[in-house]
């Protein structure tokens, strides 16, 4: 393994041991900080993720997206490209999955094409964990149903760190469809490890009181919590995952929870507004707020690249190190 003349990266590589990134829940605080610091270094040395930094030449990453995605898939492909790795794309629609092949068989077949990492998105929680047990390459969870989306959680936290520094004591509200949101879960684990005060807010049919058992504040009233919130992360309503409508109408939802100019006026002056995008404009957030000065939505996109570079490089390095005698 070649030496890298950036001490922070050398340090990170020596201390990171996981060949997969499946969730944020199981990470230690040290591992979480290591990932975030590594992402920050990548962002710096690639000048905002615009330059190549080819630490993963001759490696191949497979994008296994069993569920639609444009943003995350492109972000992973670009991150791999910045590191000098190739990406092969795999879409469920054009695959043998429609012929009844199991997801495990599909993954094994793709692995047999000498793939070093598999970036997996699937509608069922636990599928990346299932594949990690059956394949030898690195598995990166790019979203498993409503369970976790670790790189999204990391990029959200990286963005908050950039804007607010230390997260300890910061009041971060996740607003919307918590029940079906993998972004919410990854954020909750990551934010709590870093000492933030996490509030989940949304309709009672989508925000379970059970979160309180994990030290998360639960609210159903955005206007009540808004004045004391430092960061607002507006989650998309996952219409496609909801078996039955959990609230009477989109209009009523927007009335109760949409982040608009009037609500913004009652918030802290330095509030940070995020959205893991794709957003339903006018439902979770009105266009003037989404595009306004408090919004950091575009920073999130750049940080997504940095985080994914860090994750790909660290997991692949850990696997390659463990393979050598």
């Amino acid at each position: 393994m070649p030496r890298i003349d950036i001490p922070e990266l050398e340090h990170a590589r020596n201390h990171w041991t996981r060949p997969h990134l499946l969730d944020l829940e199981s990470l230690s605080l040290e591992e979480l900080v290591l990932l975030l610091d590594t992402a920050a270094v990548f962002k710096r040395v690639t000048q905002g993720c615009t330059r190549r930094f080819p630490l993963l030449k001759n490696r191949t990453c497979a994008n296994l997206f069993f569920e639609n995605s444009t943003r995350t898939r492109t972000s992973f492909a670009l991150a791999a490209g910045r590191l000098g790795a190739d990406t092969v794309d795999f879409t469920a629609a054009g695959s043998s999955l429609s012929k009844g092949e199991t997801v495990t068989d599909t993954a094994r077949n793709i692995e047999a094409m000498n793939v070093d990492a598999m970036v997996v998105r699937h509608a069922t929680p636990g599928t990346p964990q299932l594949l990690a047990r059956h394949v030898g390459c690195s598995v990166i969870n790019a979203g498993d149903g409503p369970h976790e989306h670790p790189t999204q959680g990391l990029l959200d936290i990286m963005t908050i760190r950039e804007h607010r520094g230390n997260l300890a004591g910061l009041r971060v509200a996740l607003v919307g469809d918590i029940a079906h949101s993998r972004t919410a879960r990854s954020n909750i684990w990551g934010l709590k490890k870093l000492g933030a005060h996490v509030i989940v807010c949304g309709p009672s049919t989508l925000v379970s009181r059970r979160w309180e058992a994990l030290g998360v504040e639960v609210s159903h009233n955005l206007d009540e919590i808004l004045p004391n919130v430092d960061v607002l992360n507006l989650l998309r309503i996952q219409f496609e995952r909801q078996a039955a409508r959990p609230f009477p109408s989109v209009r009523e939802y927007a009335l109760l929870y949409a982040m608009n100019r009037e609500r913004l006026a009652r918030a802290k002056d330095n509030i940070v507004i995020m959205a893991p995008g794709p957003i339903n404009r006018g439902v979770e957030v009105t266009p003037d707020v989404a595009d306004g000065p408090h919004s950091v939505i575009l920073d999130q996109v750049t940080n997504g690249l940095a985080v994914r570079m860090a994750v790909l490089w660290l997991t692949l390095s850990a696997r390659e190190r463990s393979e050598r005698p």
């Binding site: 929680p125 369970h147 993998r182 059970r210 994990l214 078996a243």
Partner: peptide
């Protein structure tokens, strides 16, 4: 219907129906 496991804290954390 559609449920996979018992509804409780664990299902809330895992995001499973």
């Amino acid at each position: 219907r559609r449920g996979v496991m018992h509804e409780g804290l664990v299902s809330t954390v895992l995001g499973l129906p």
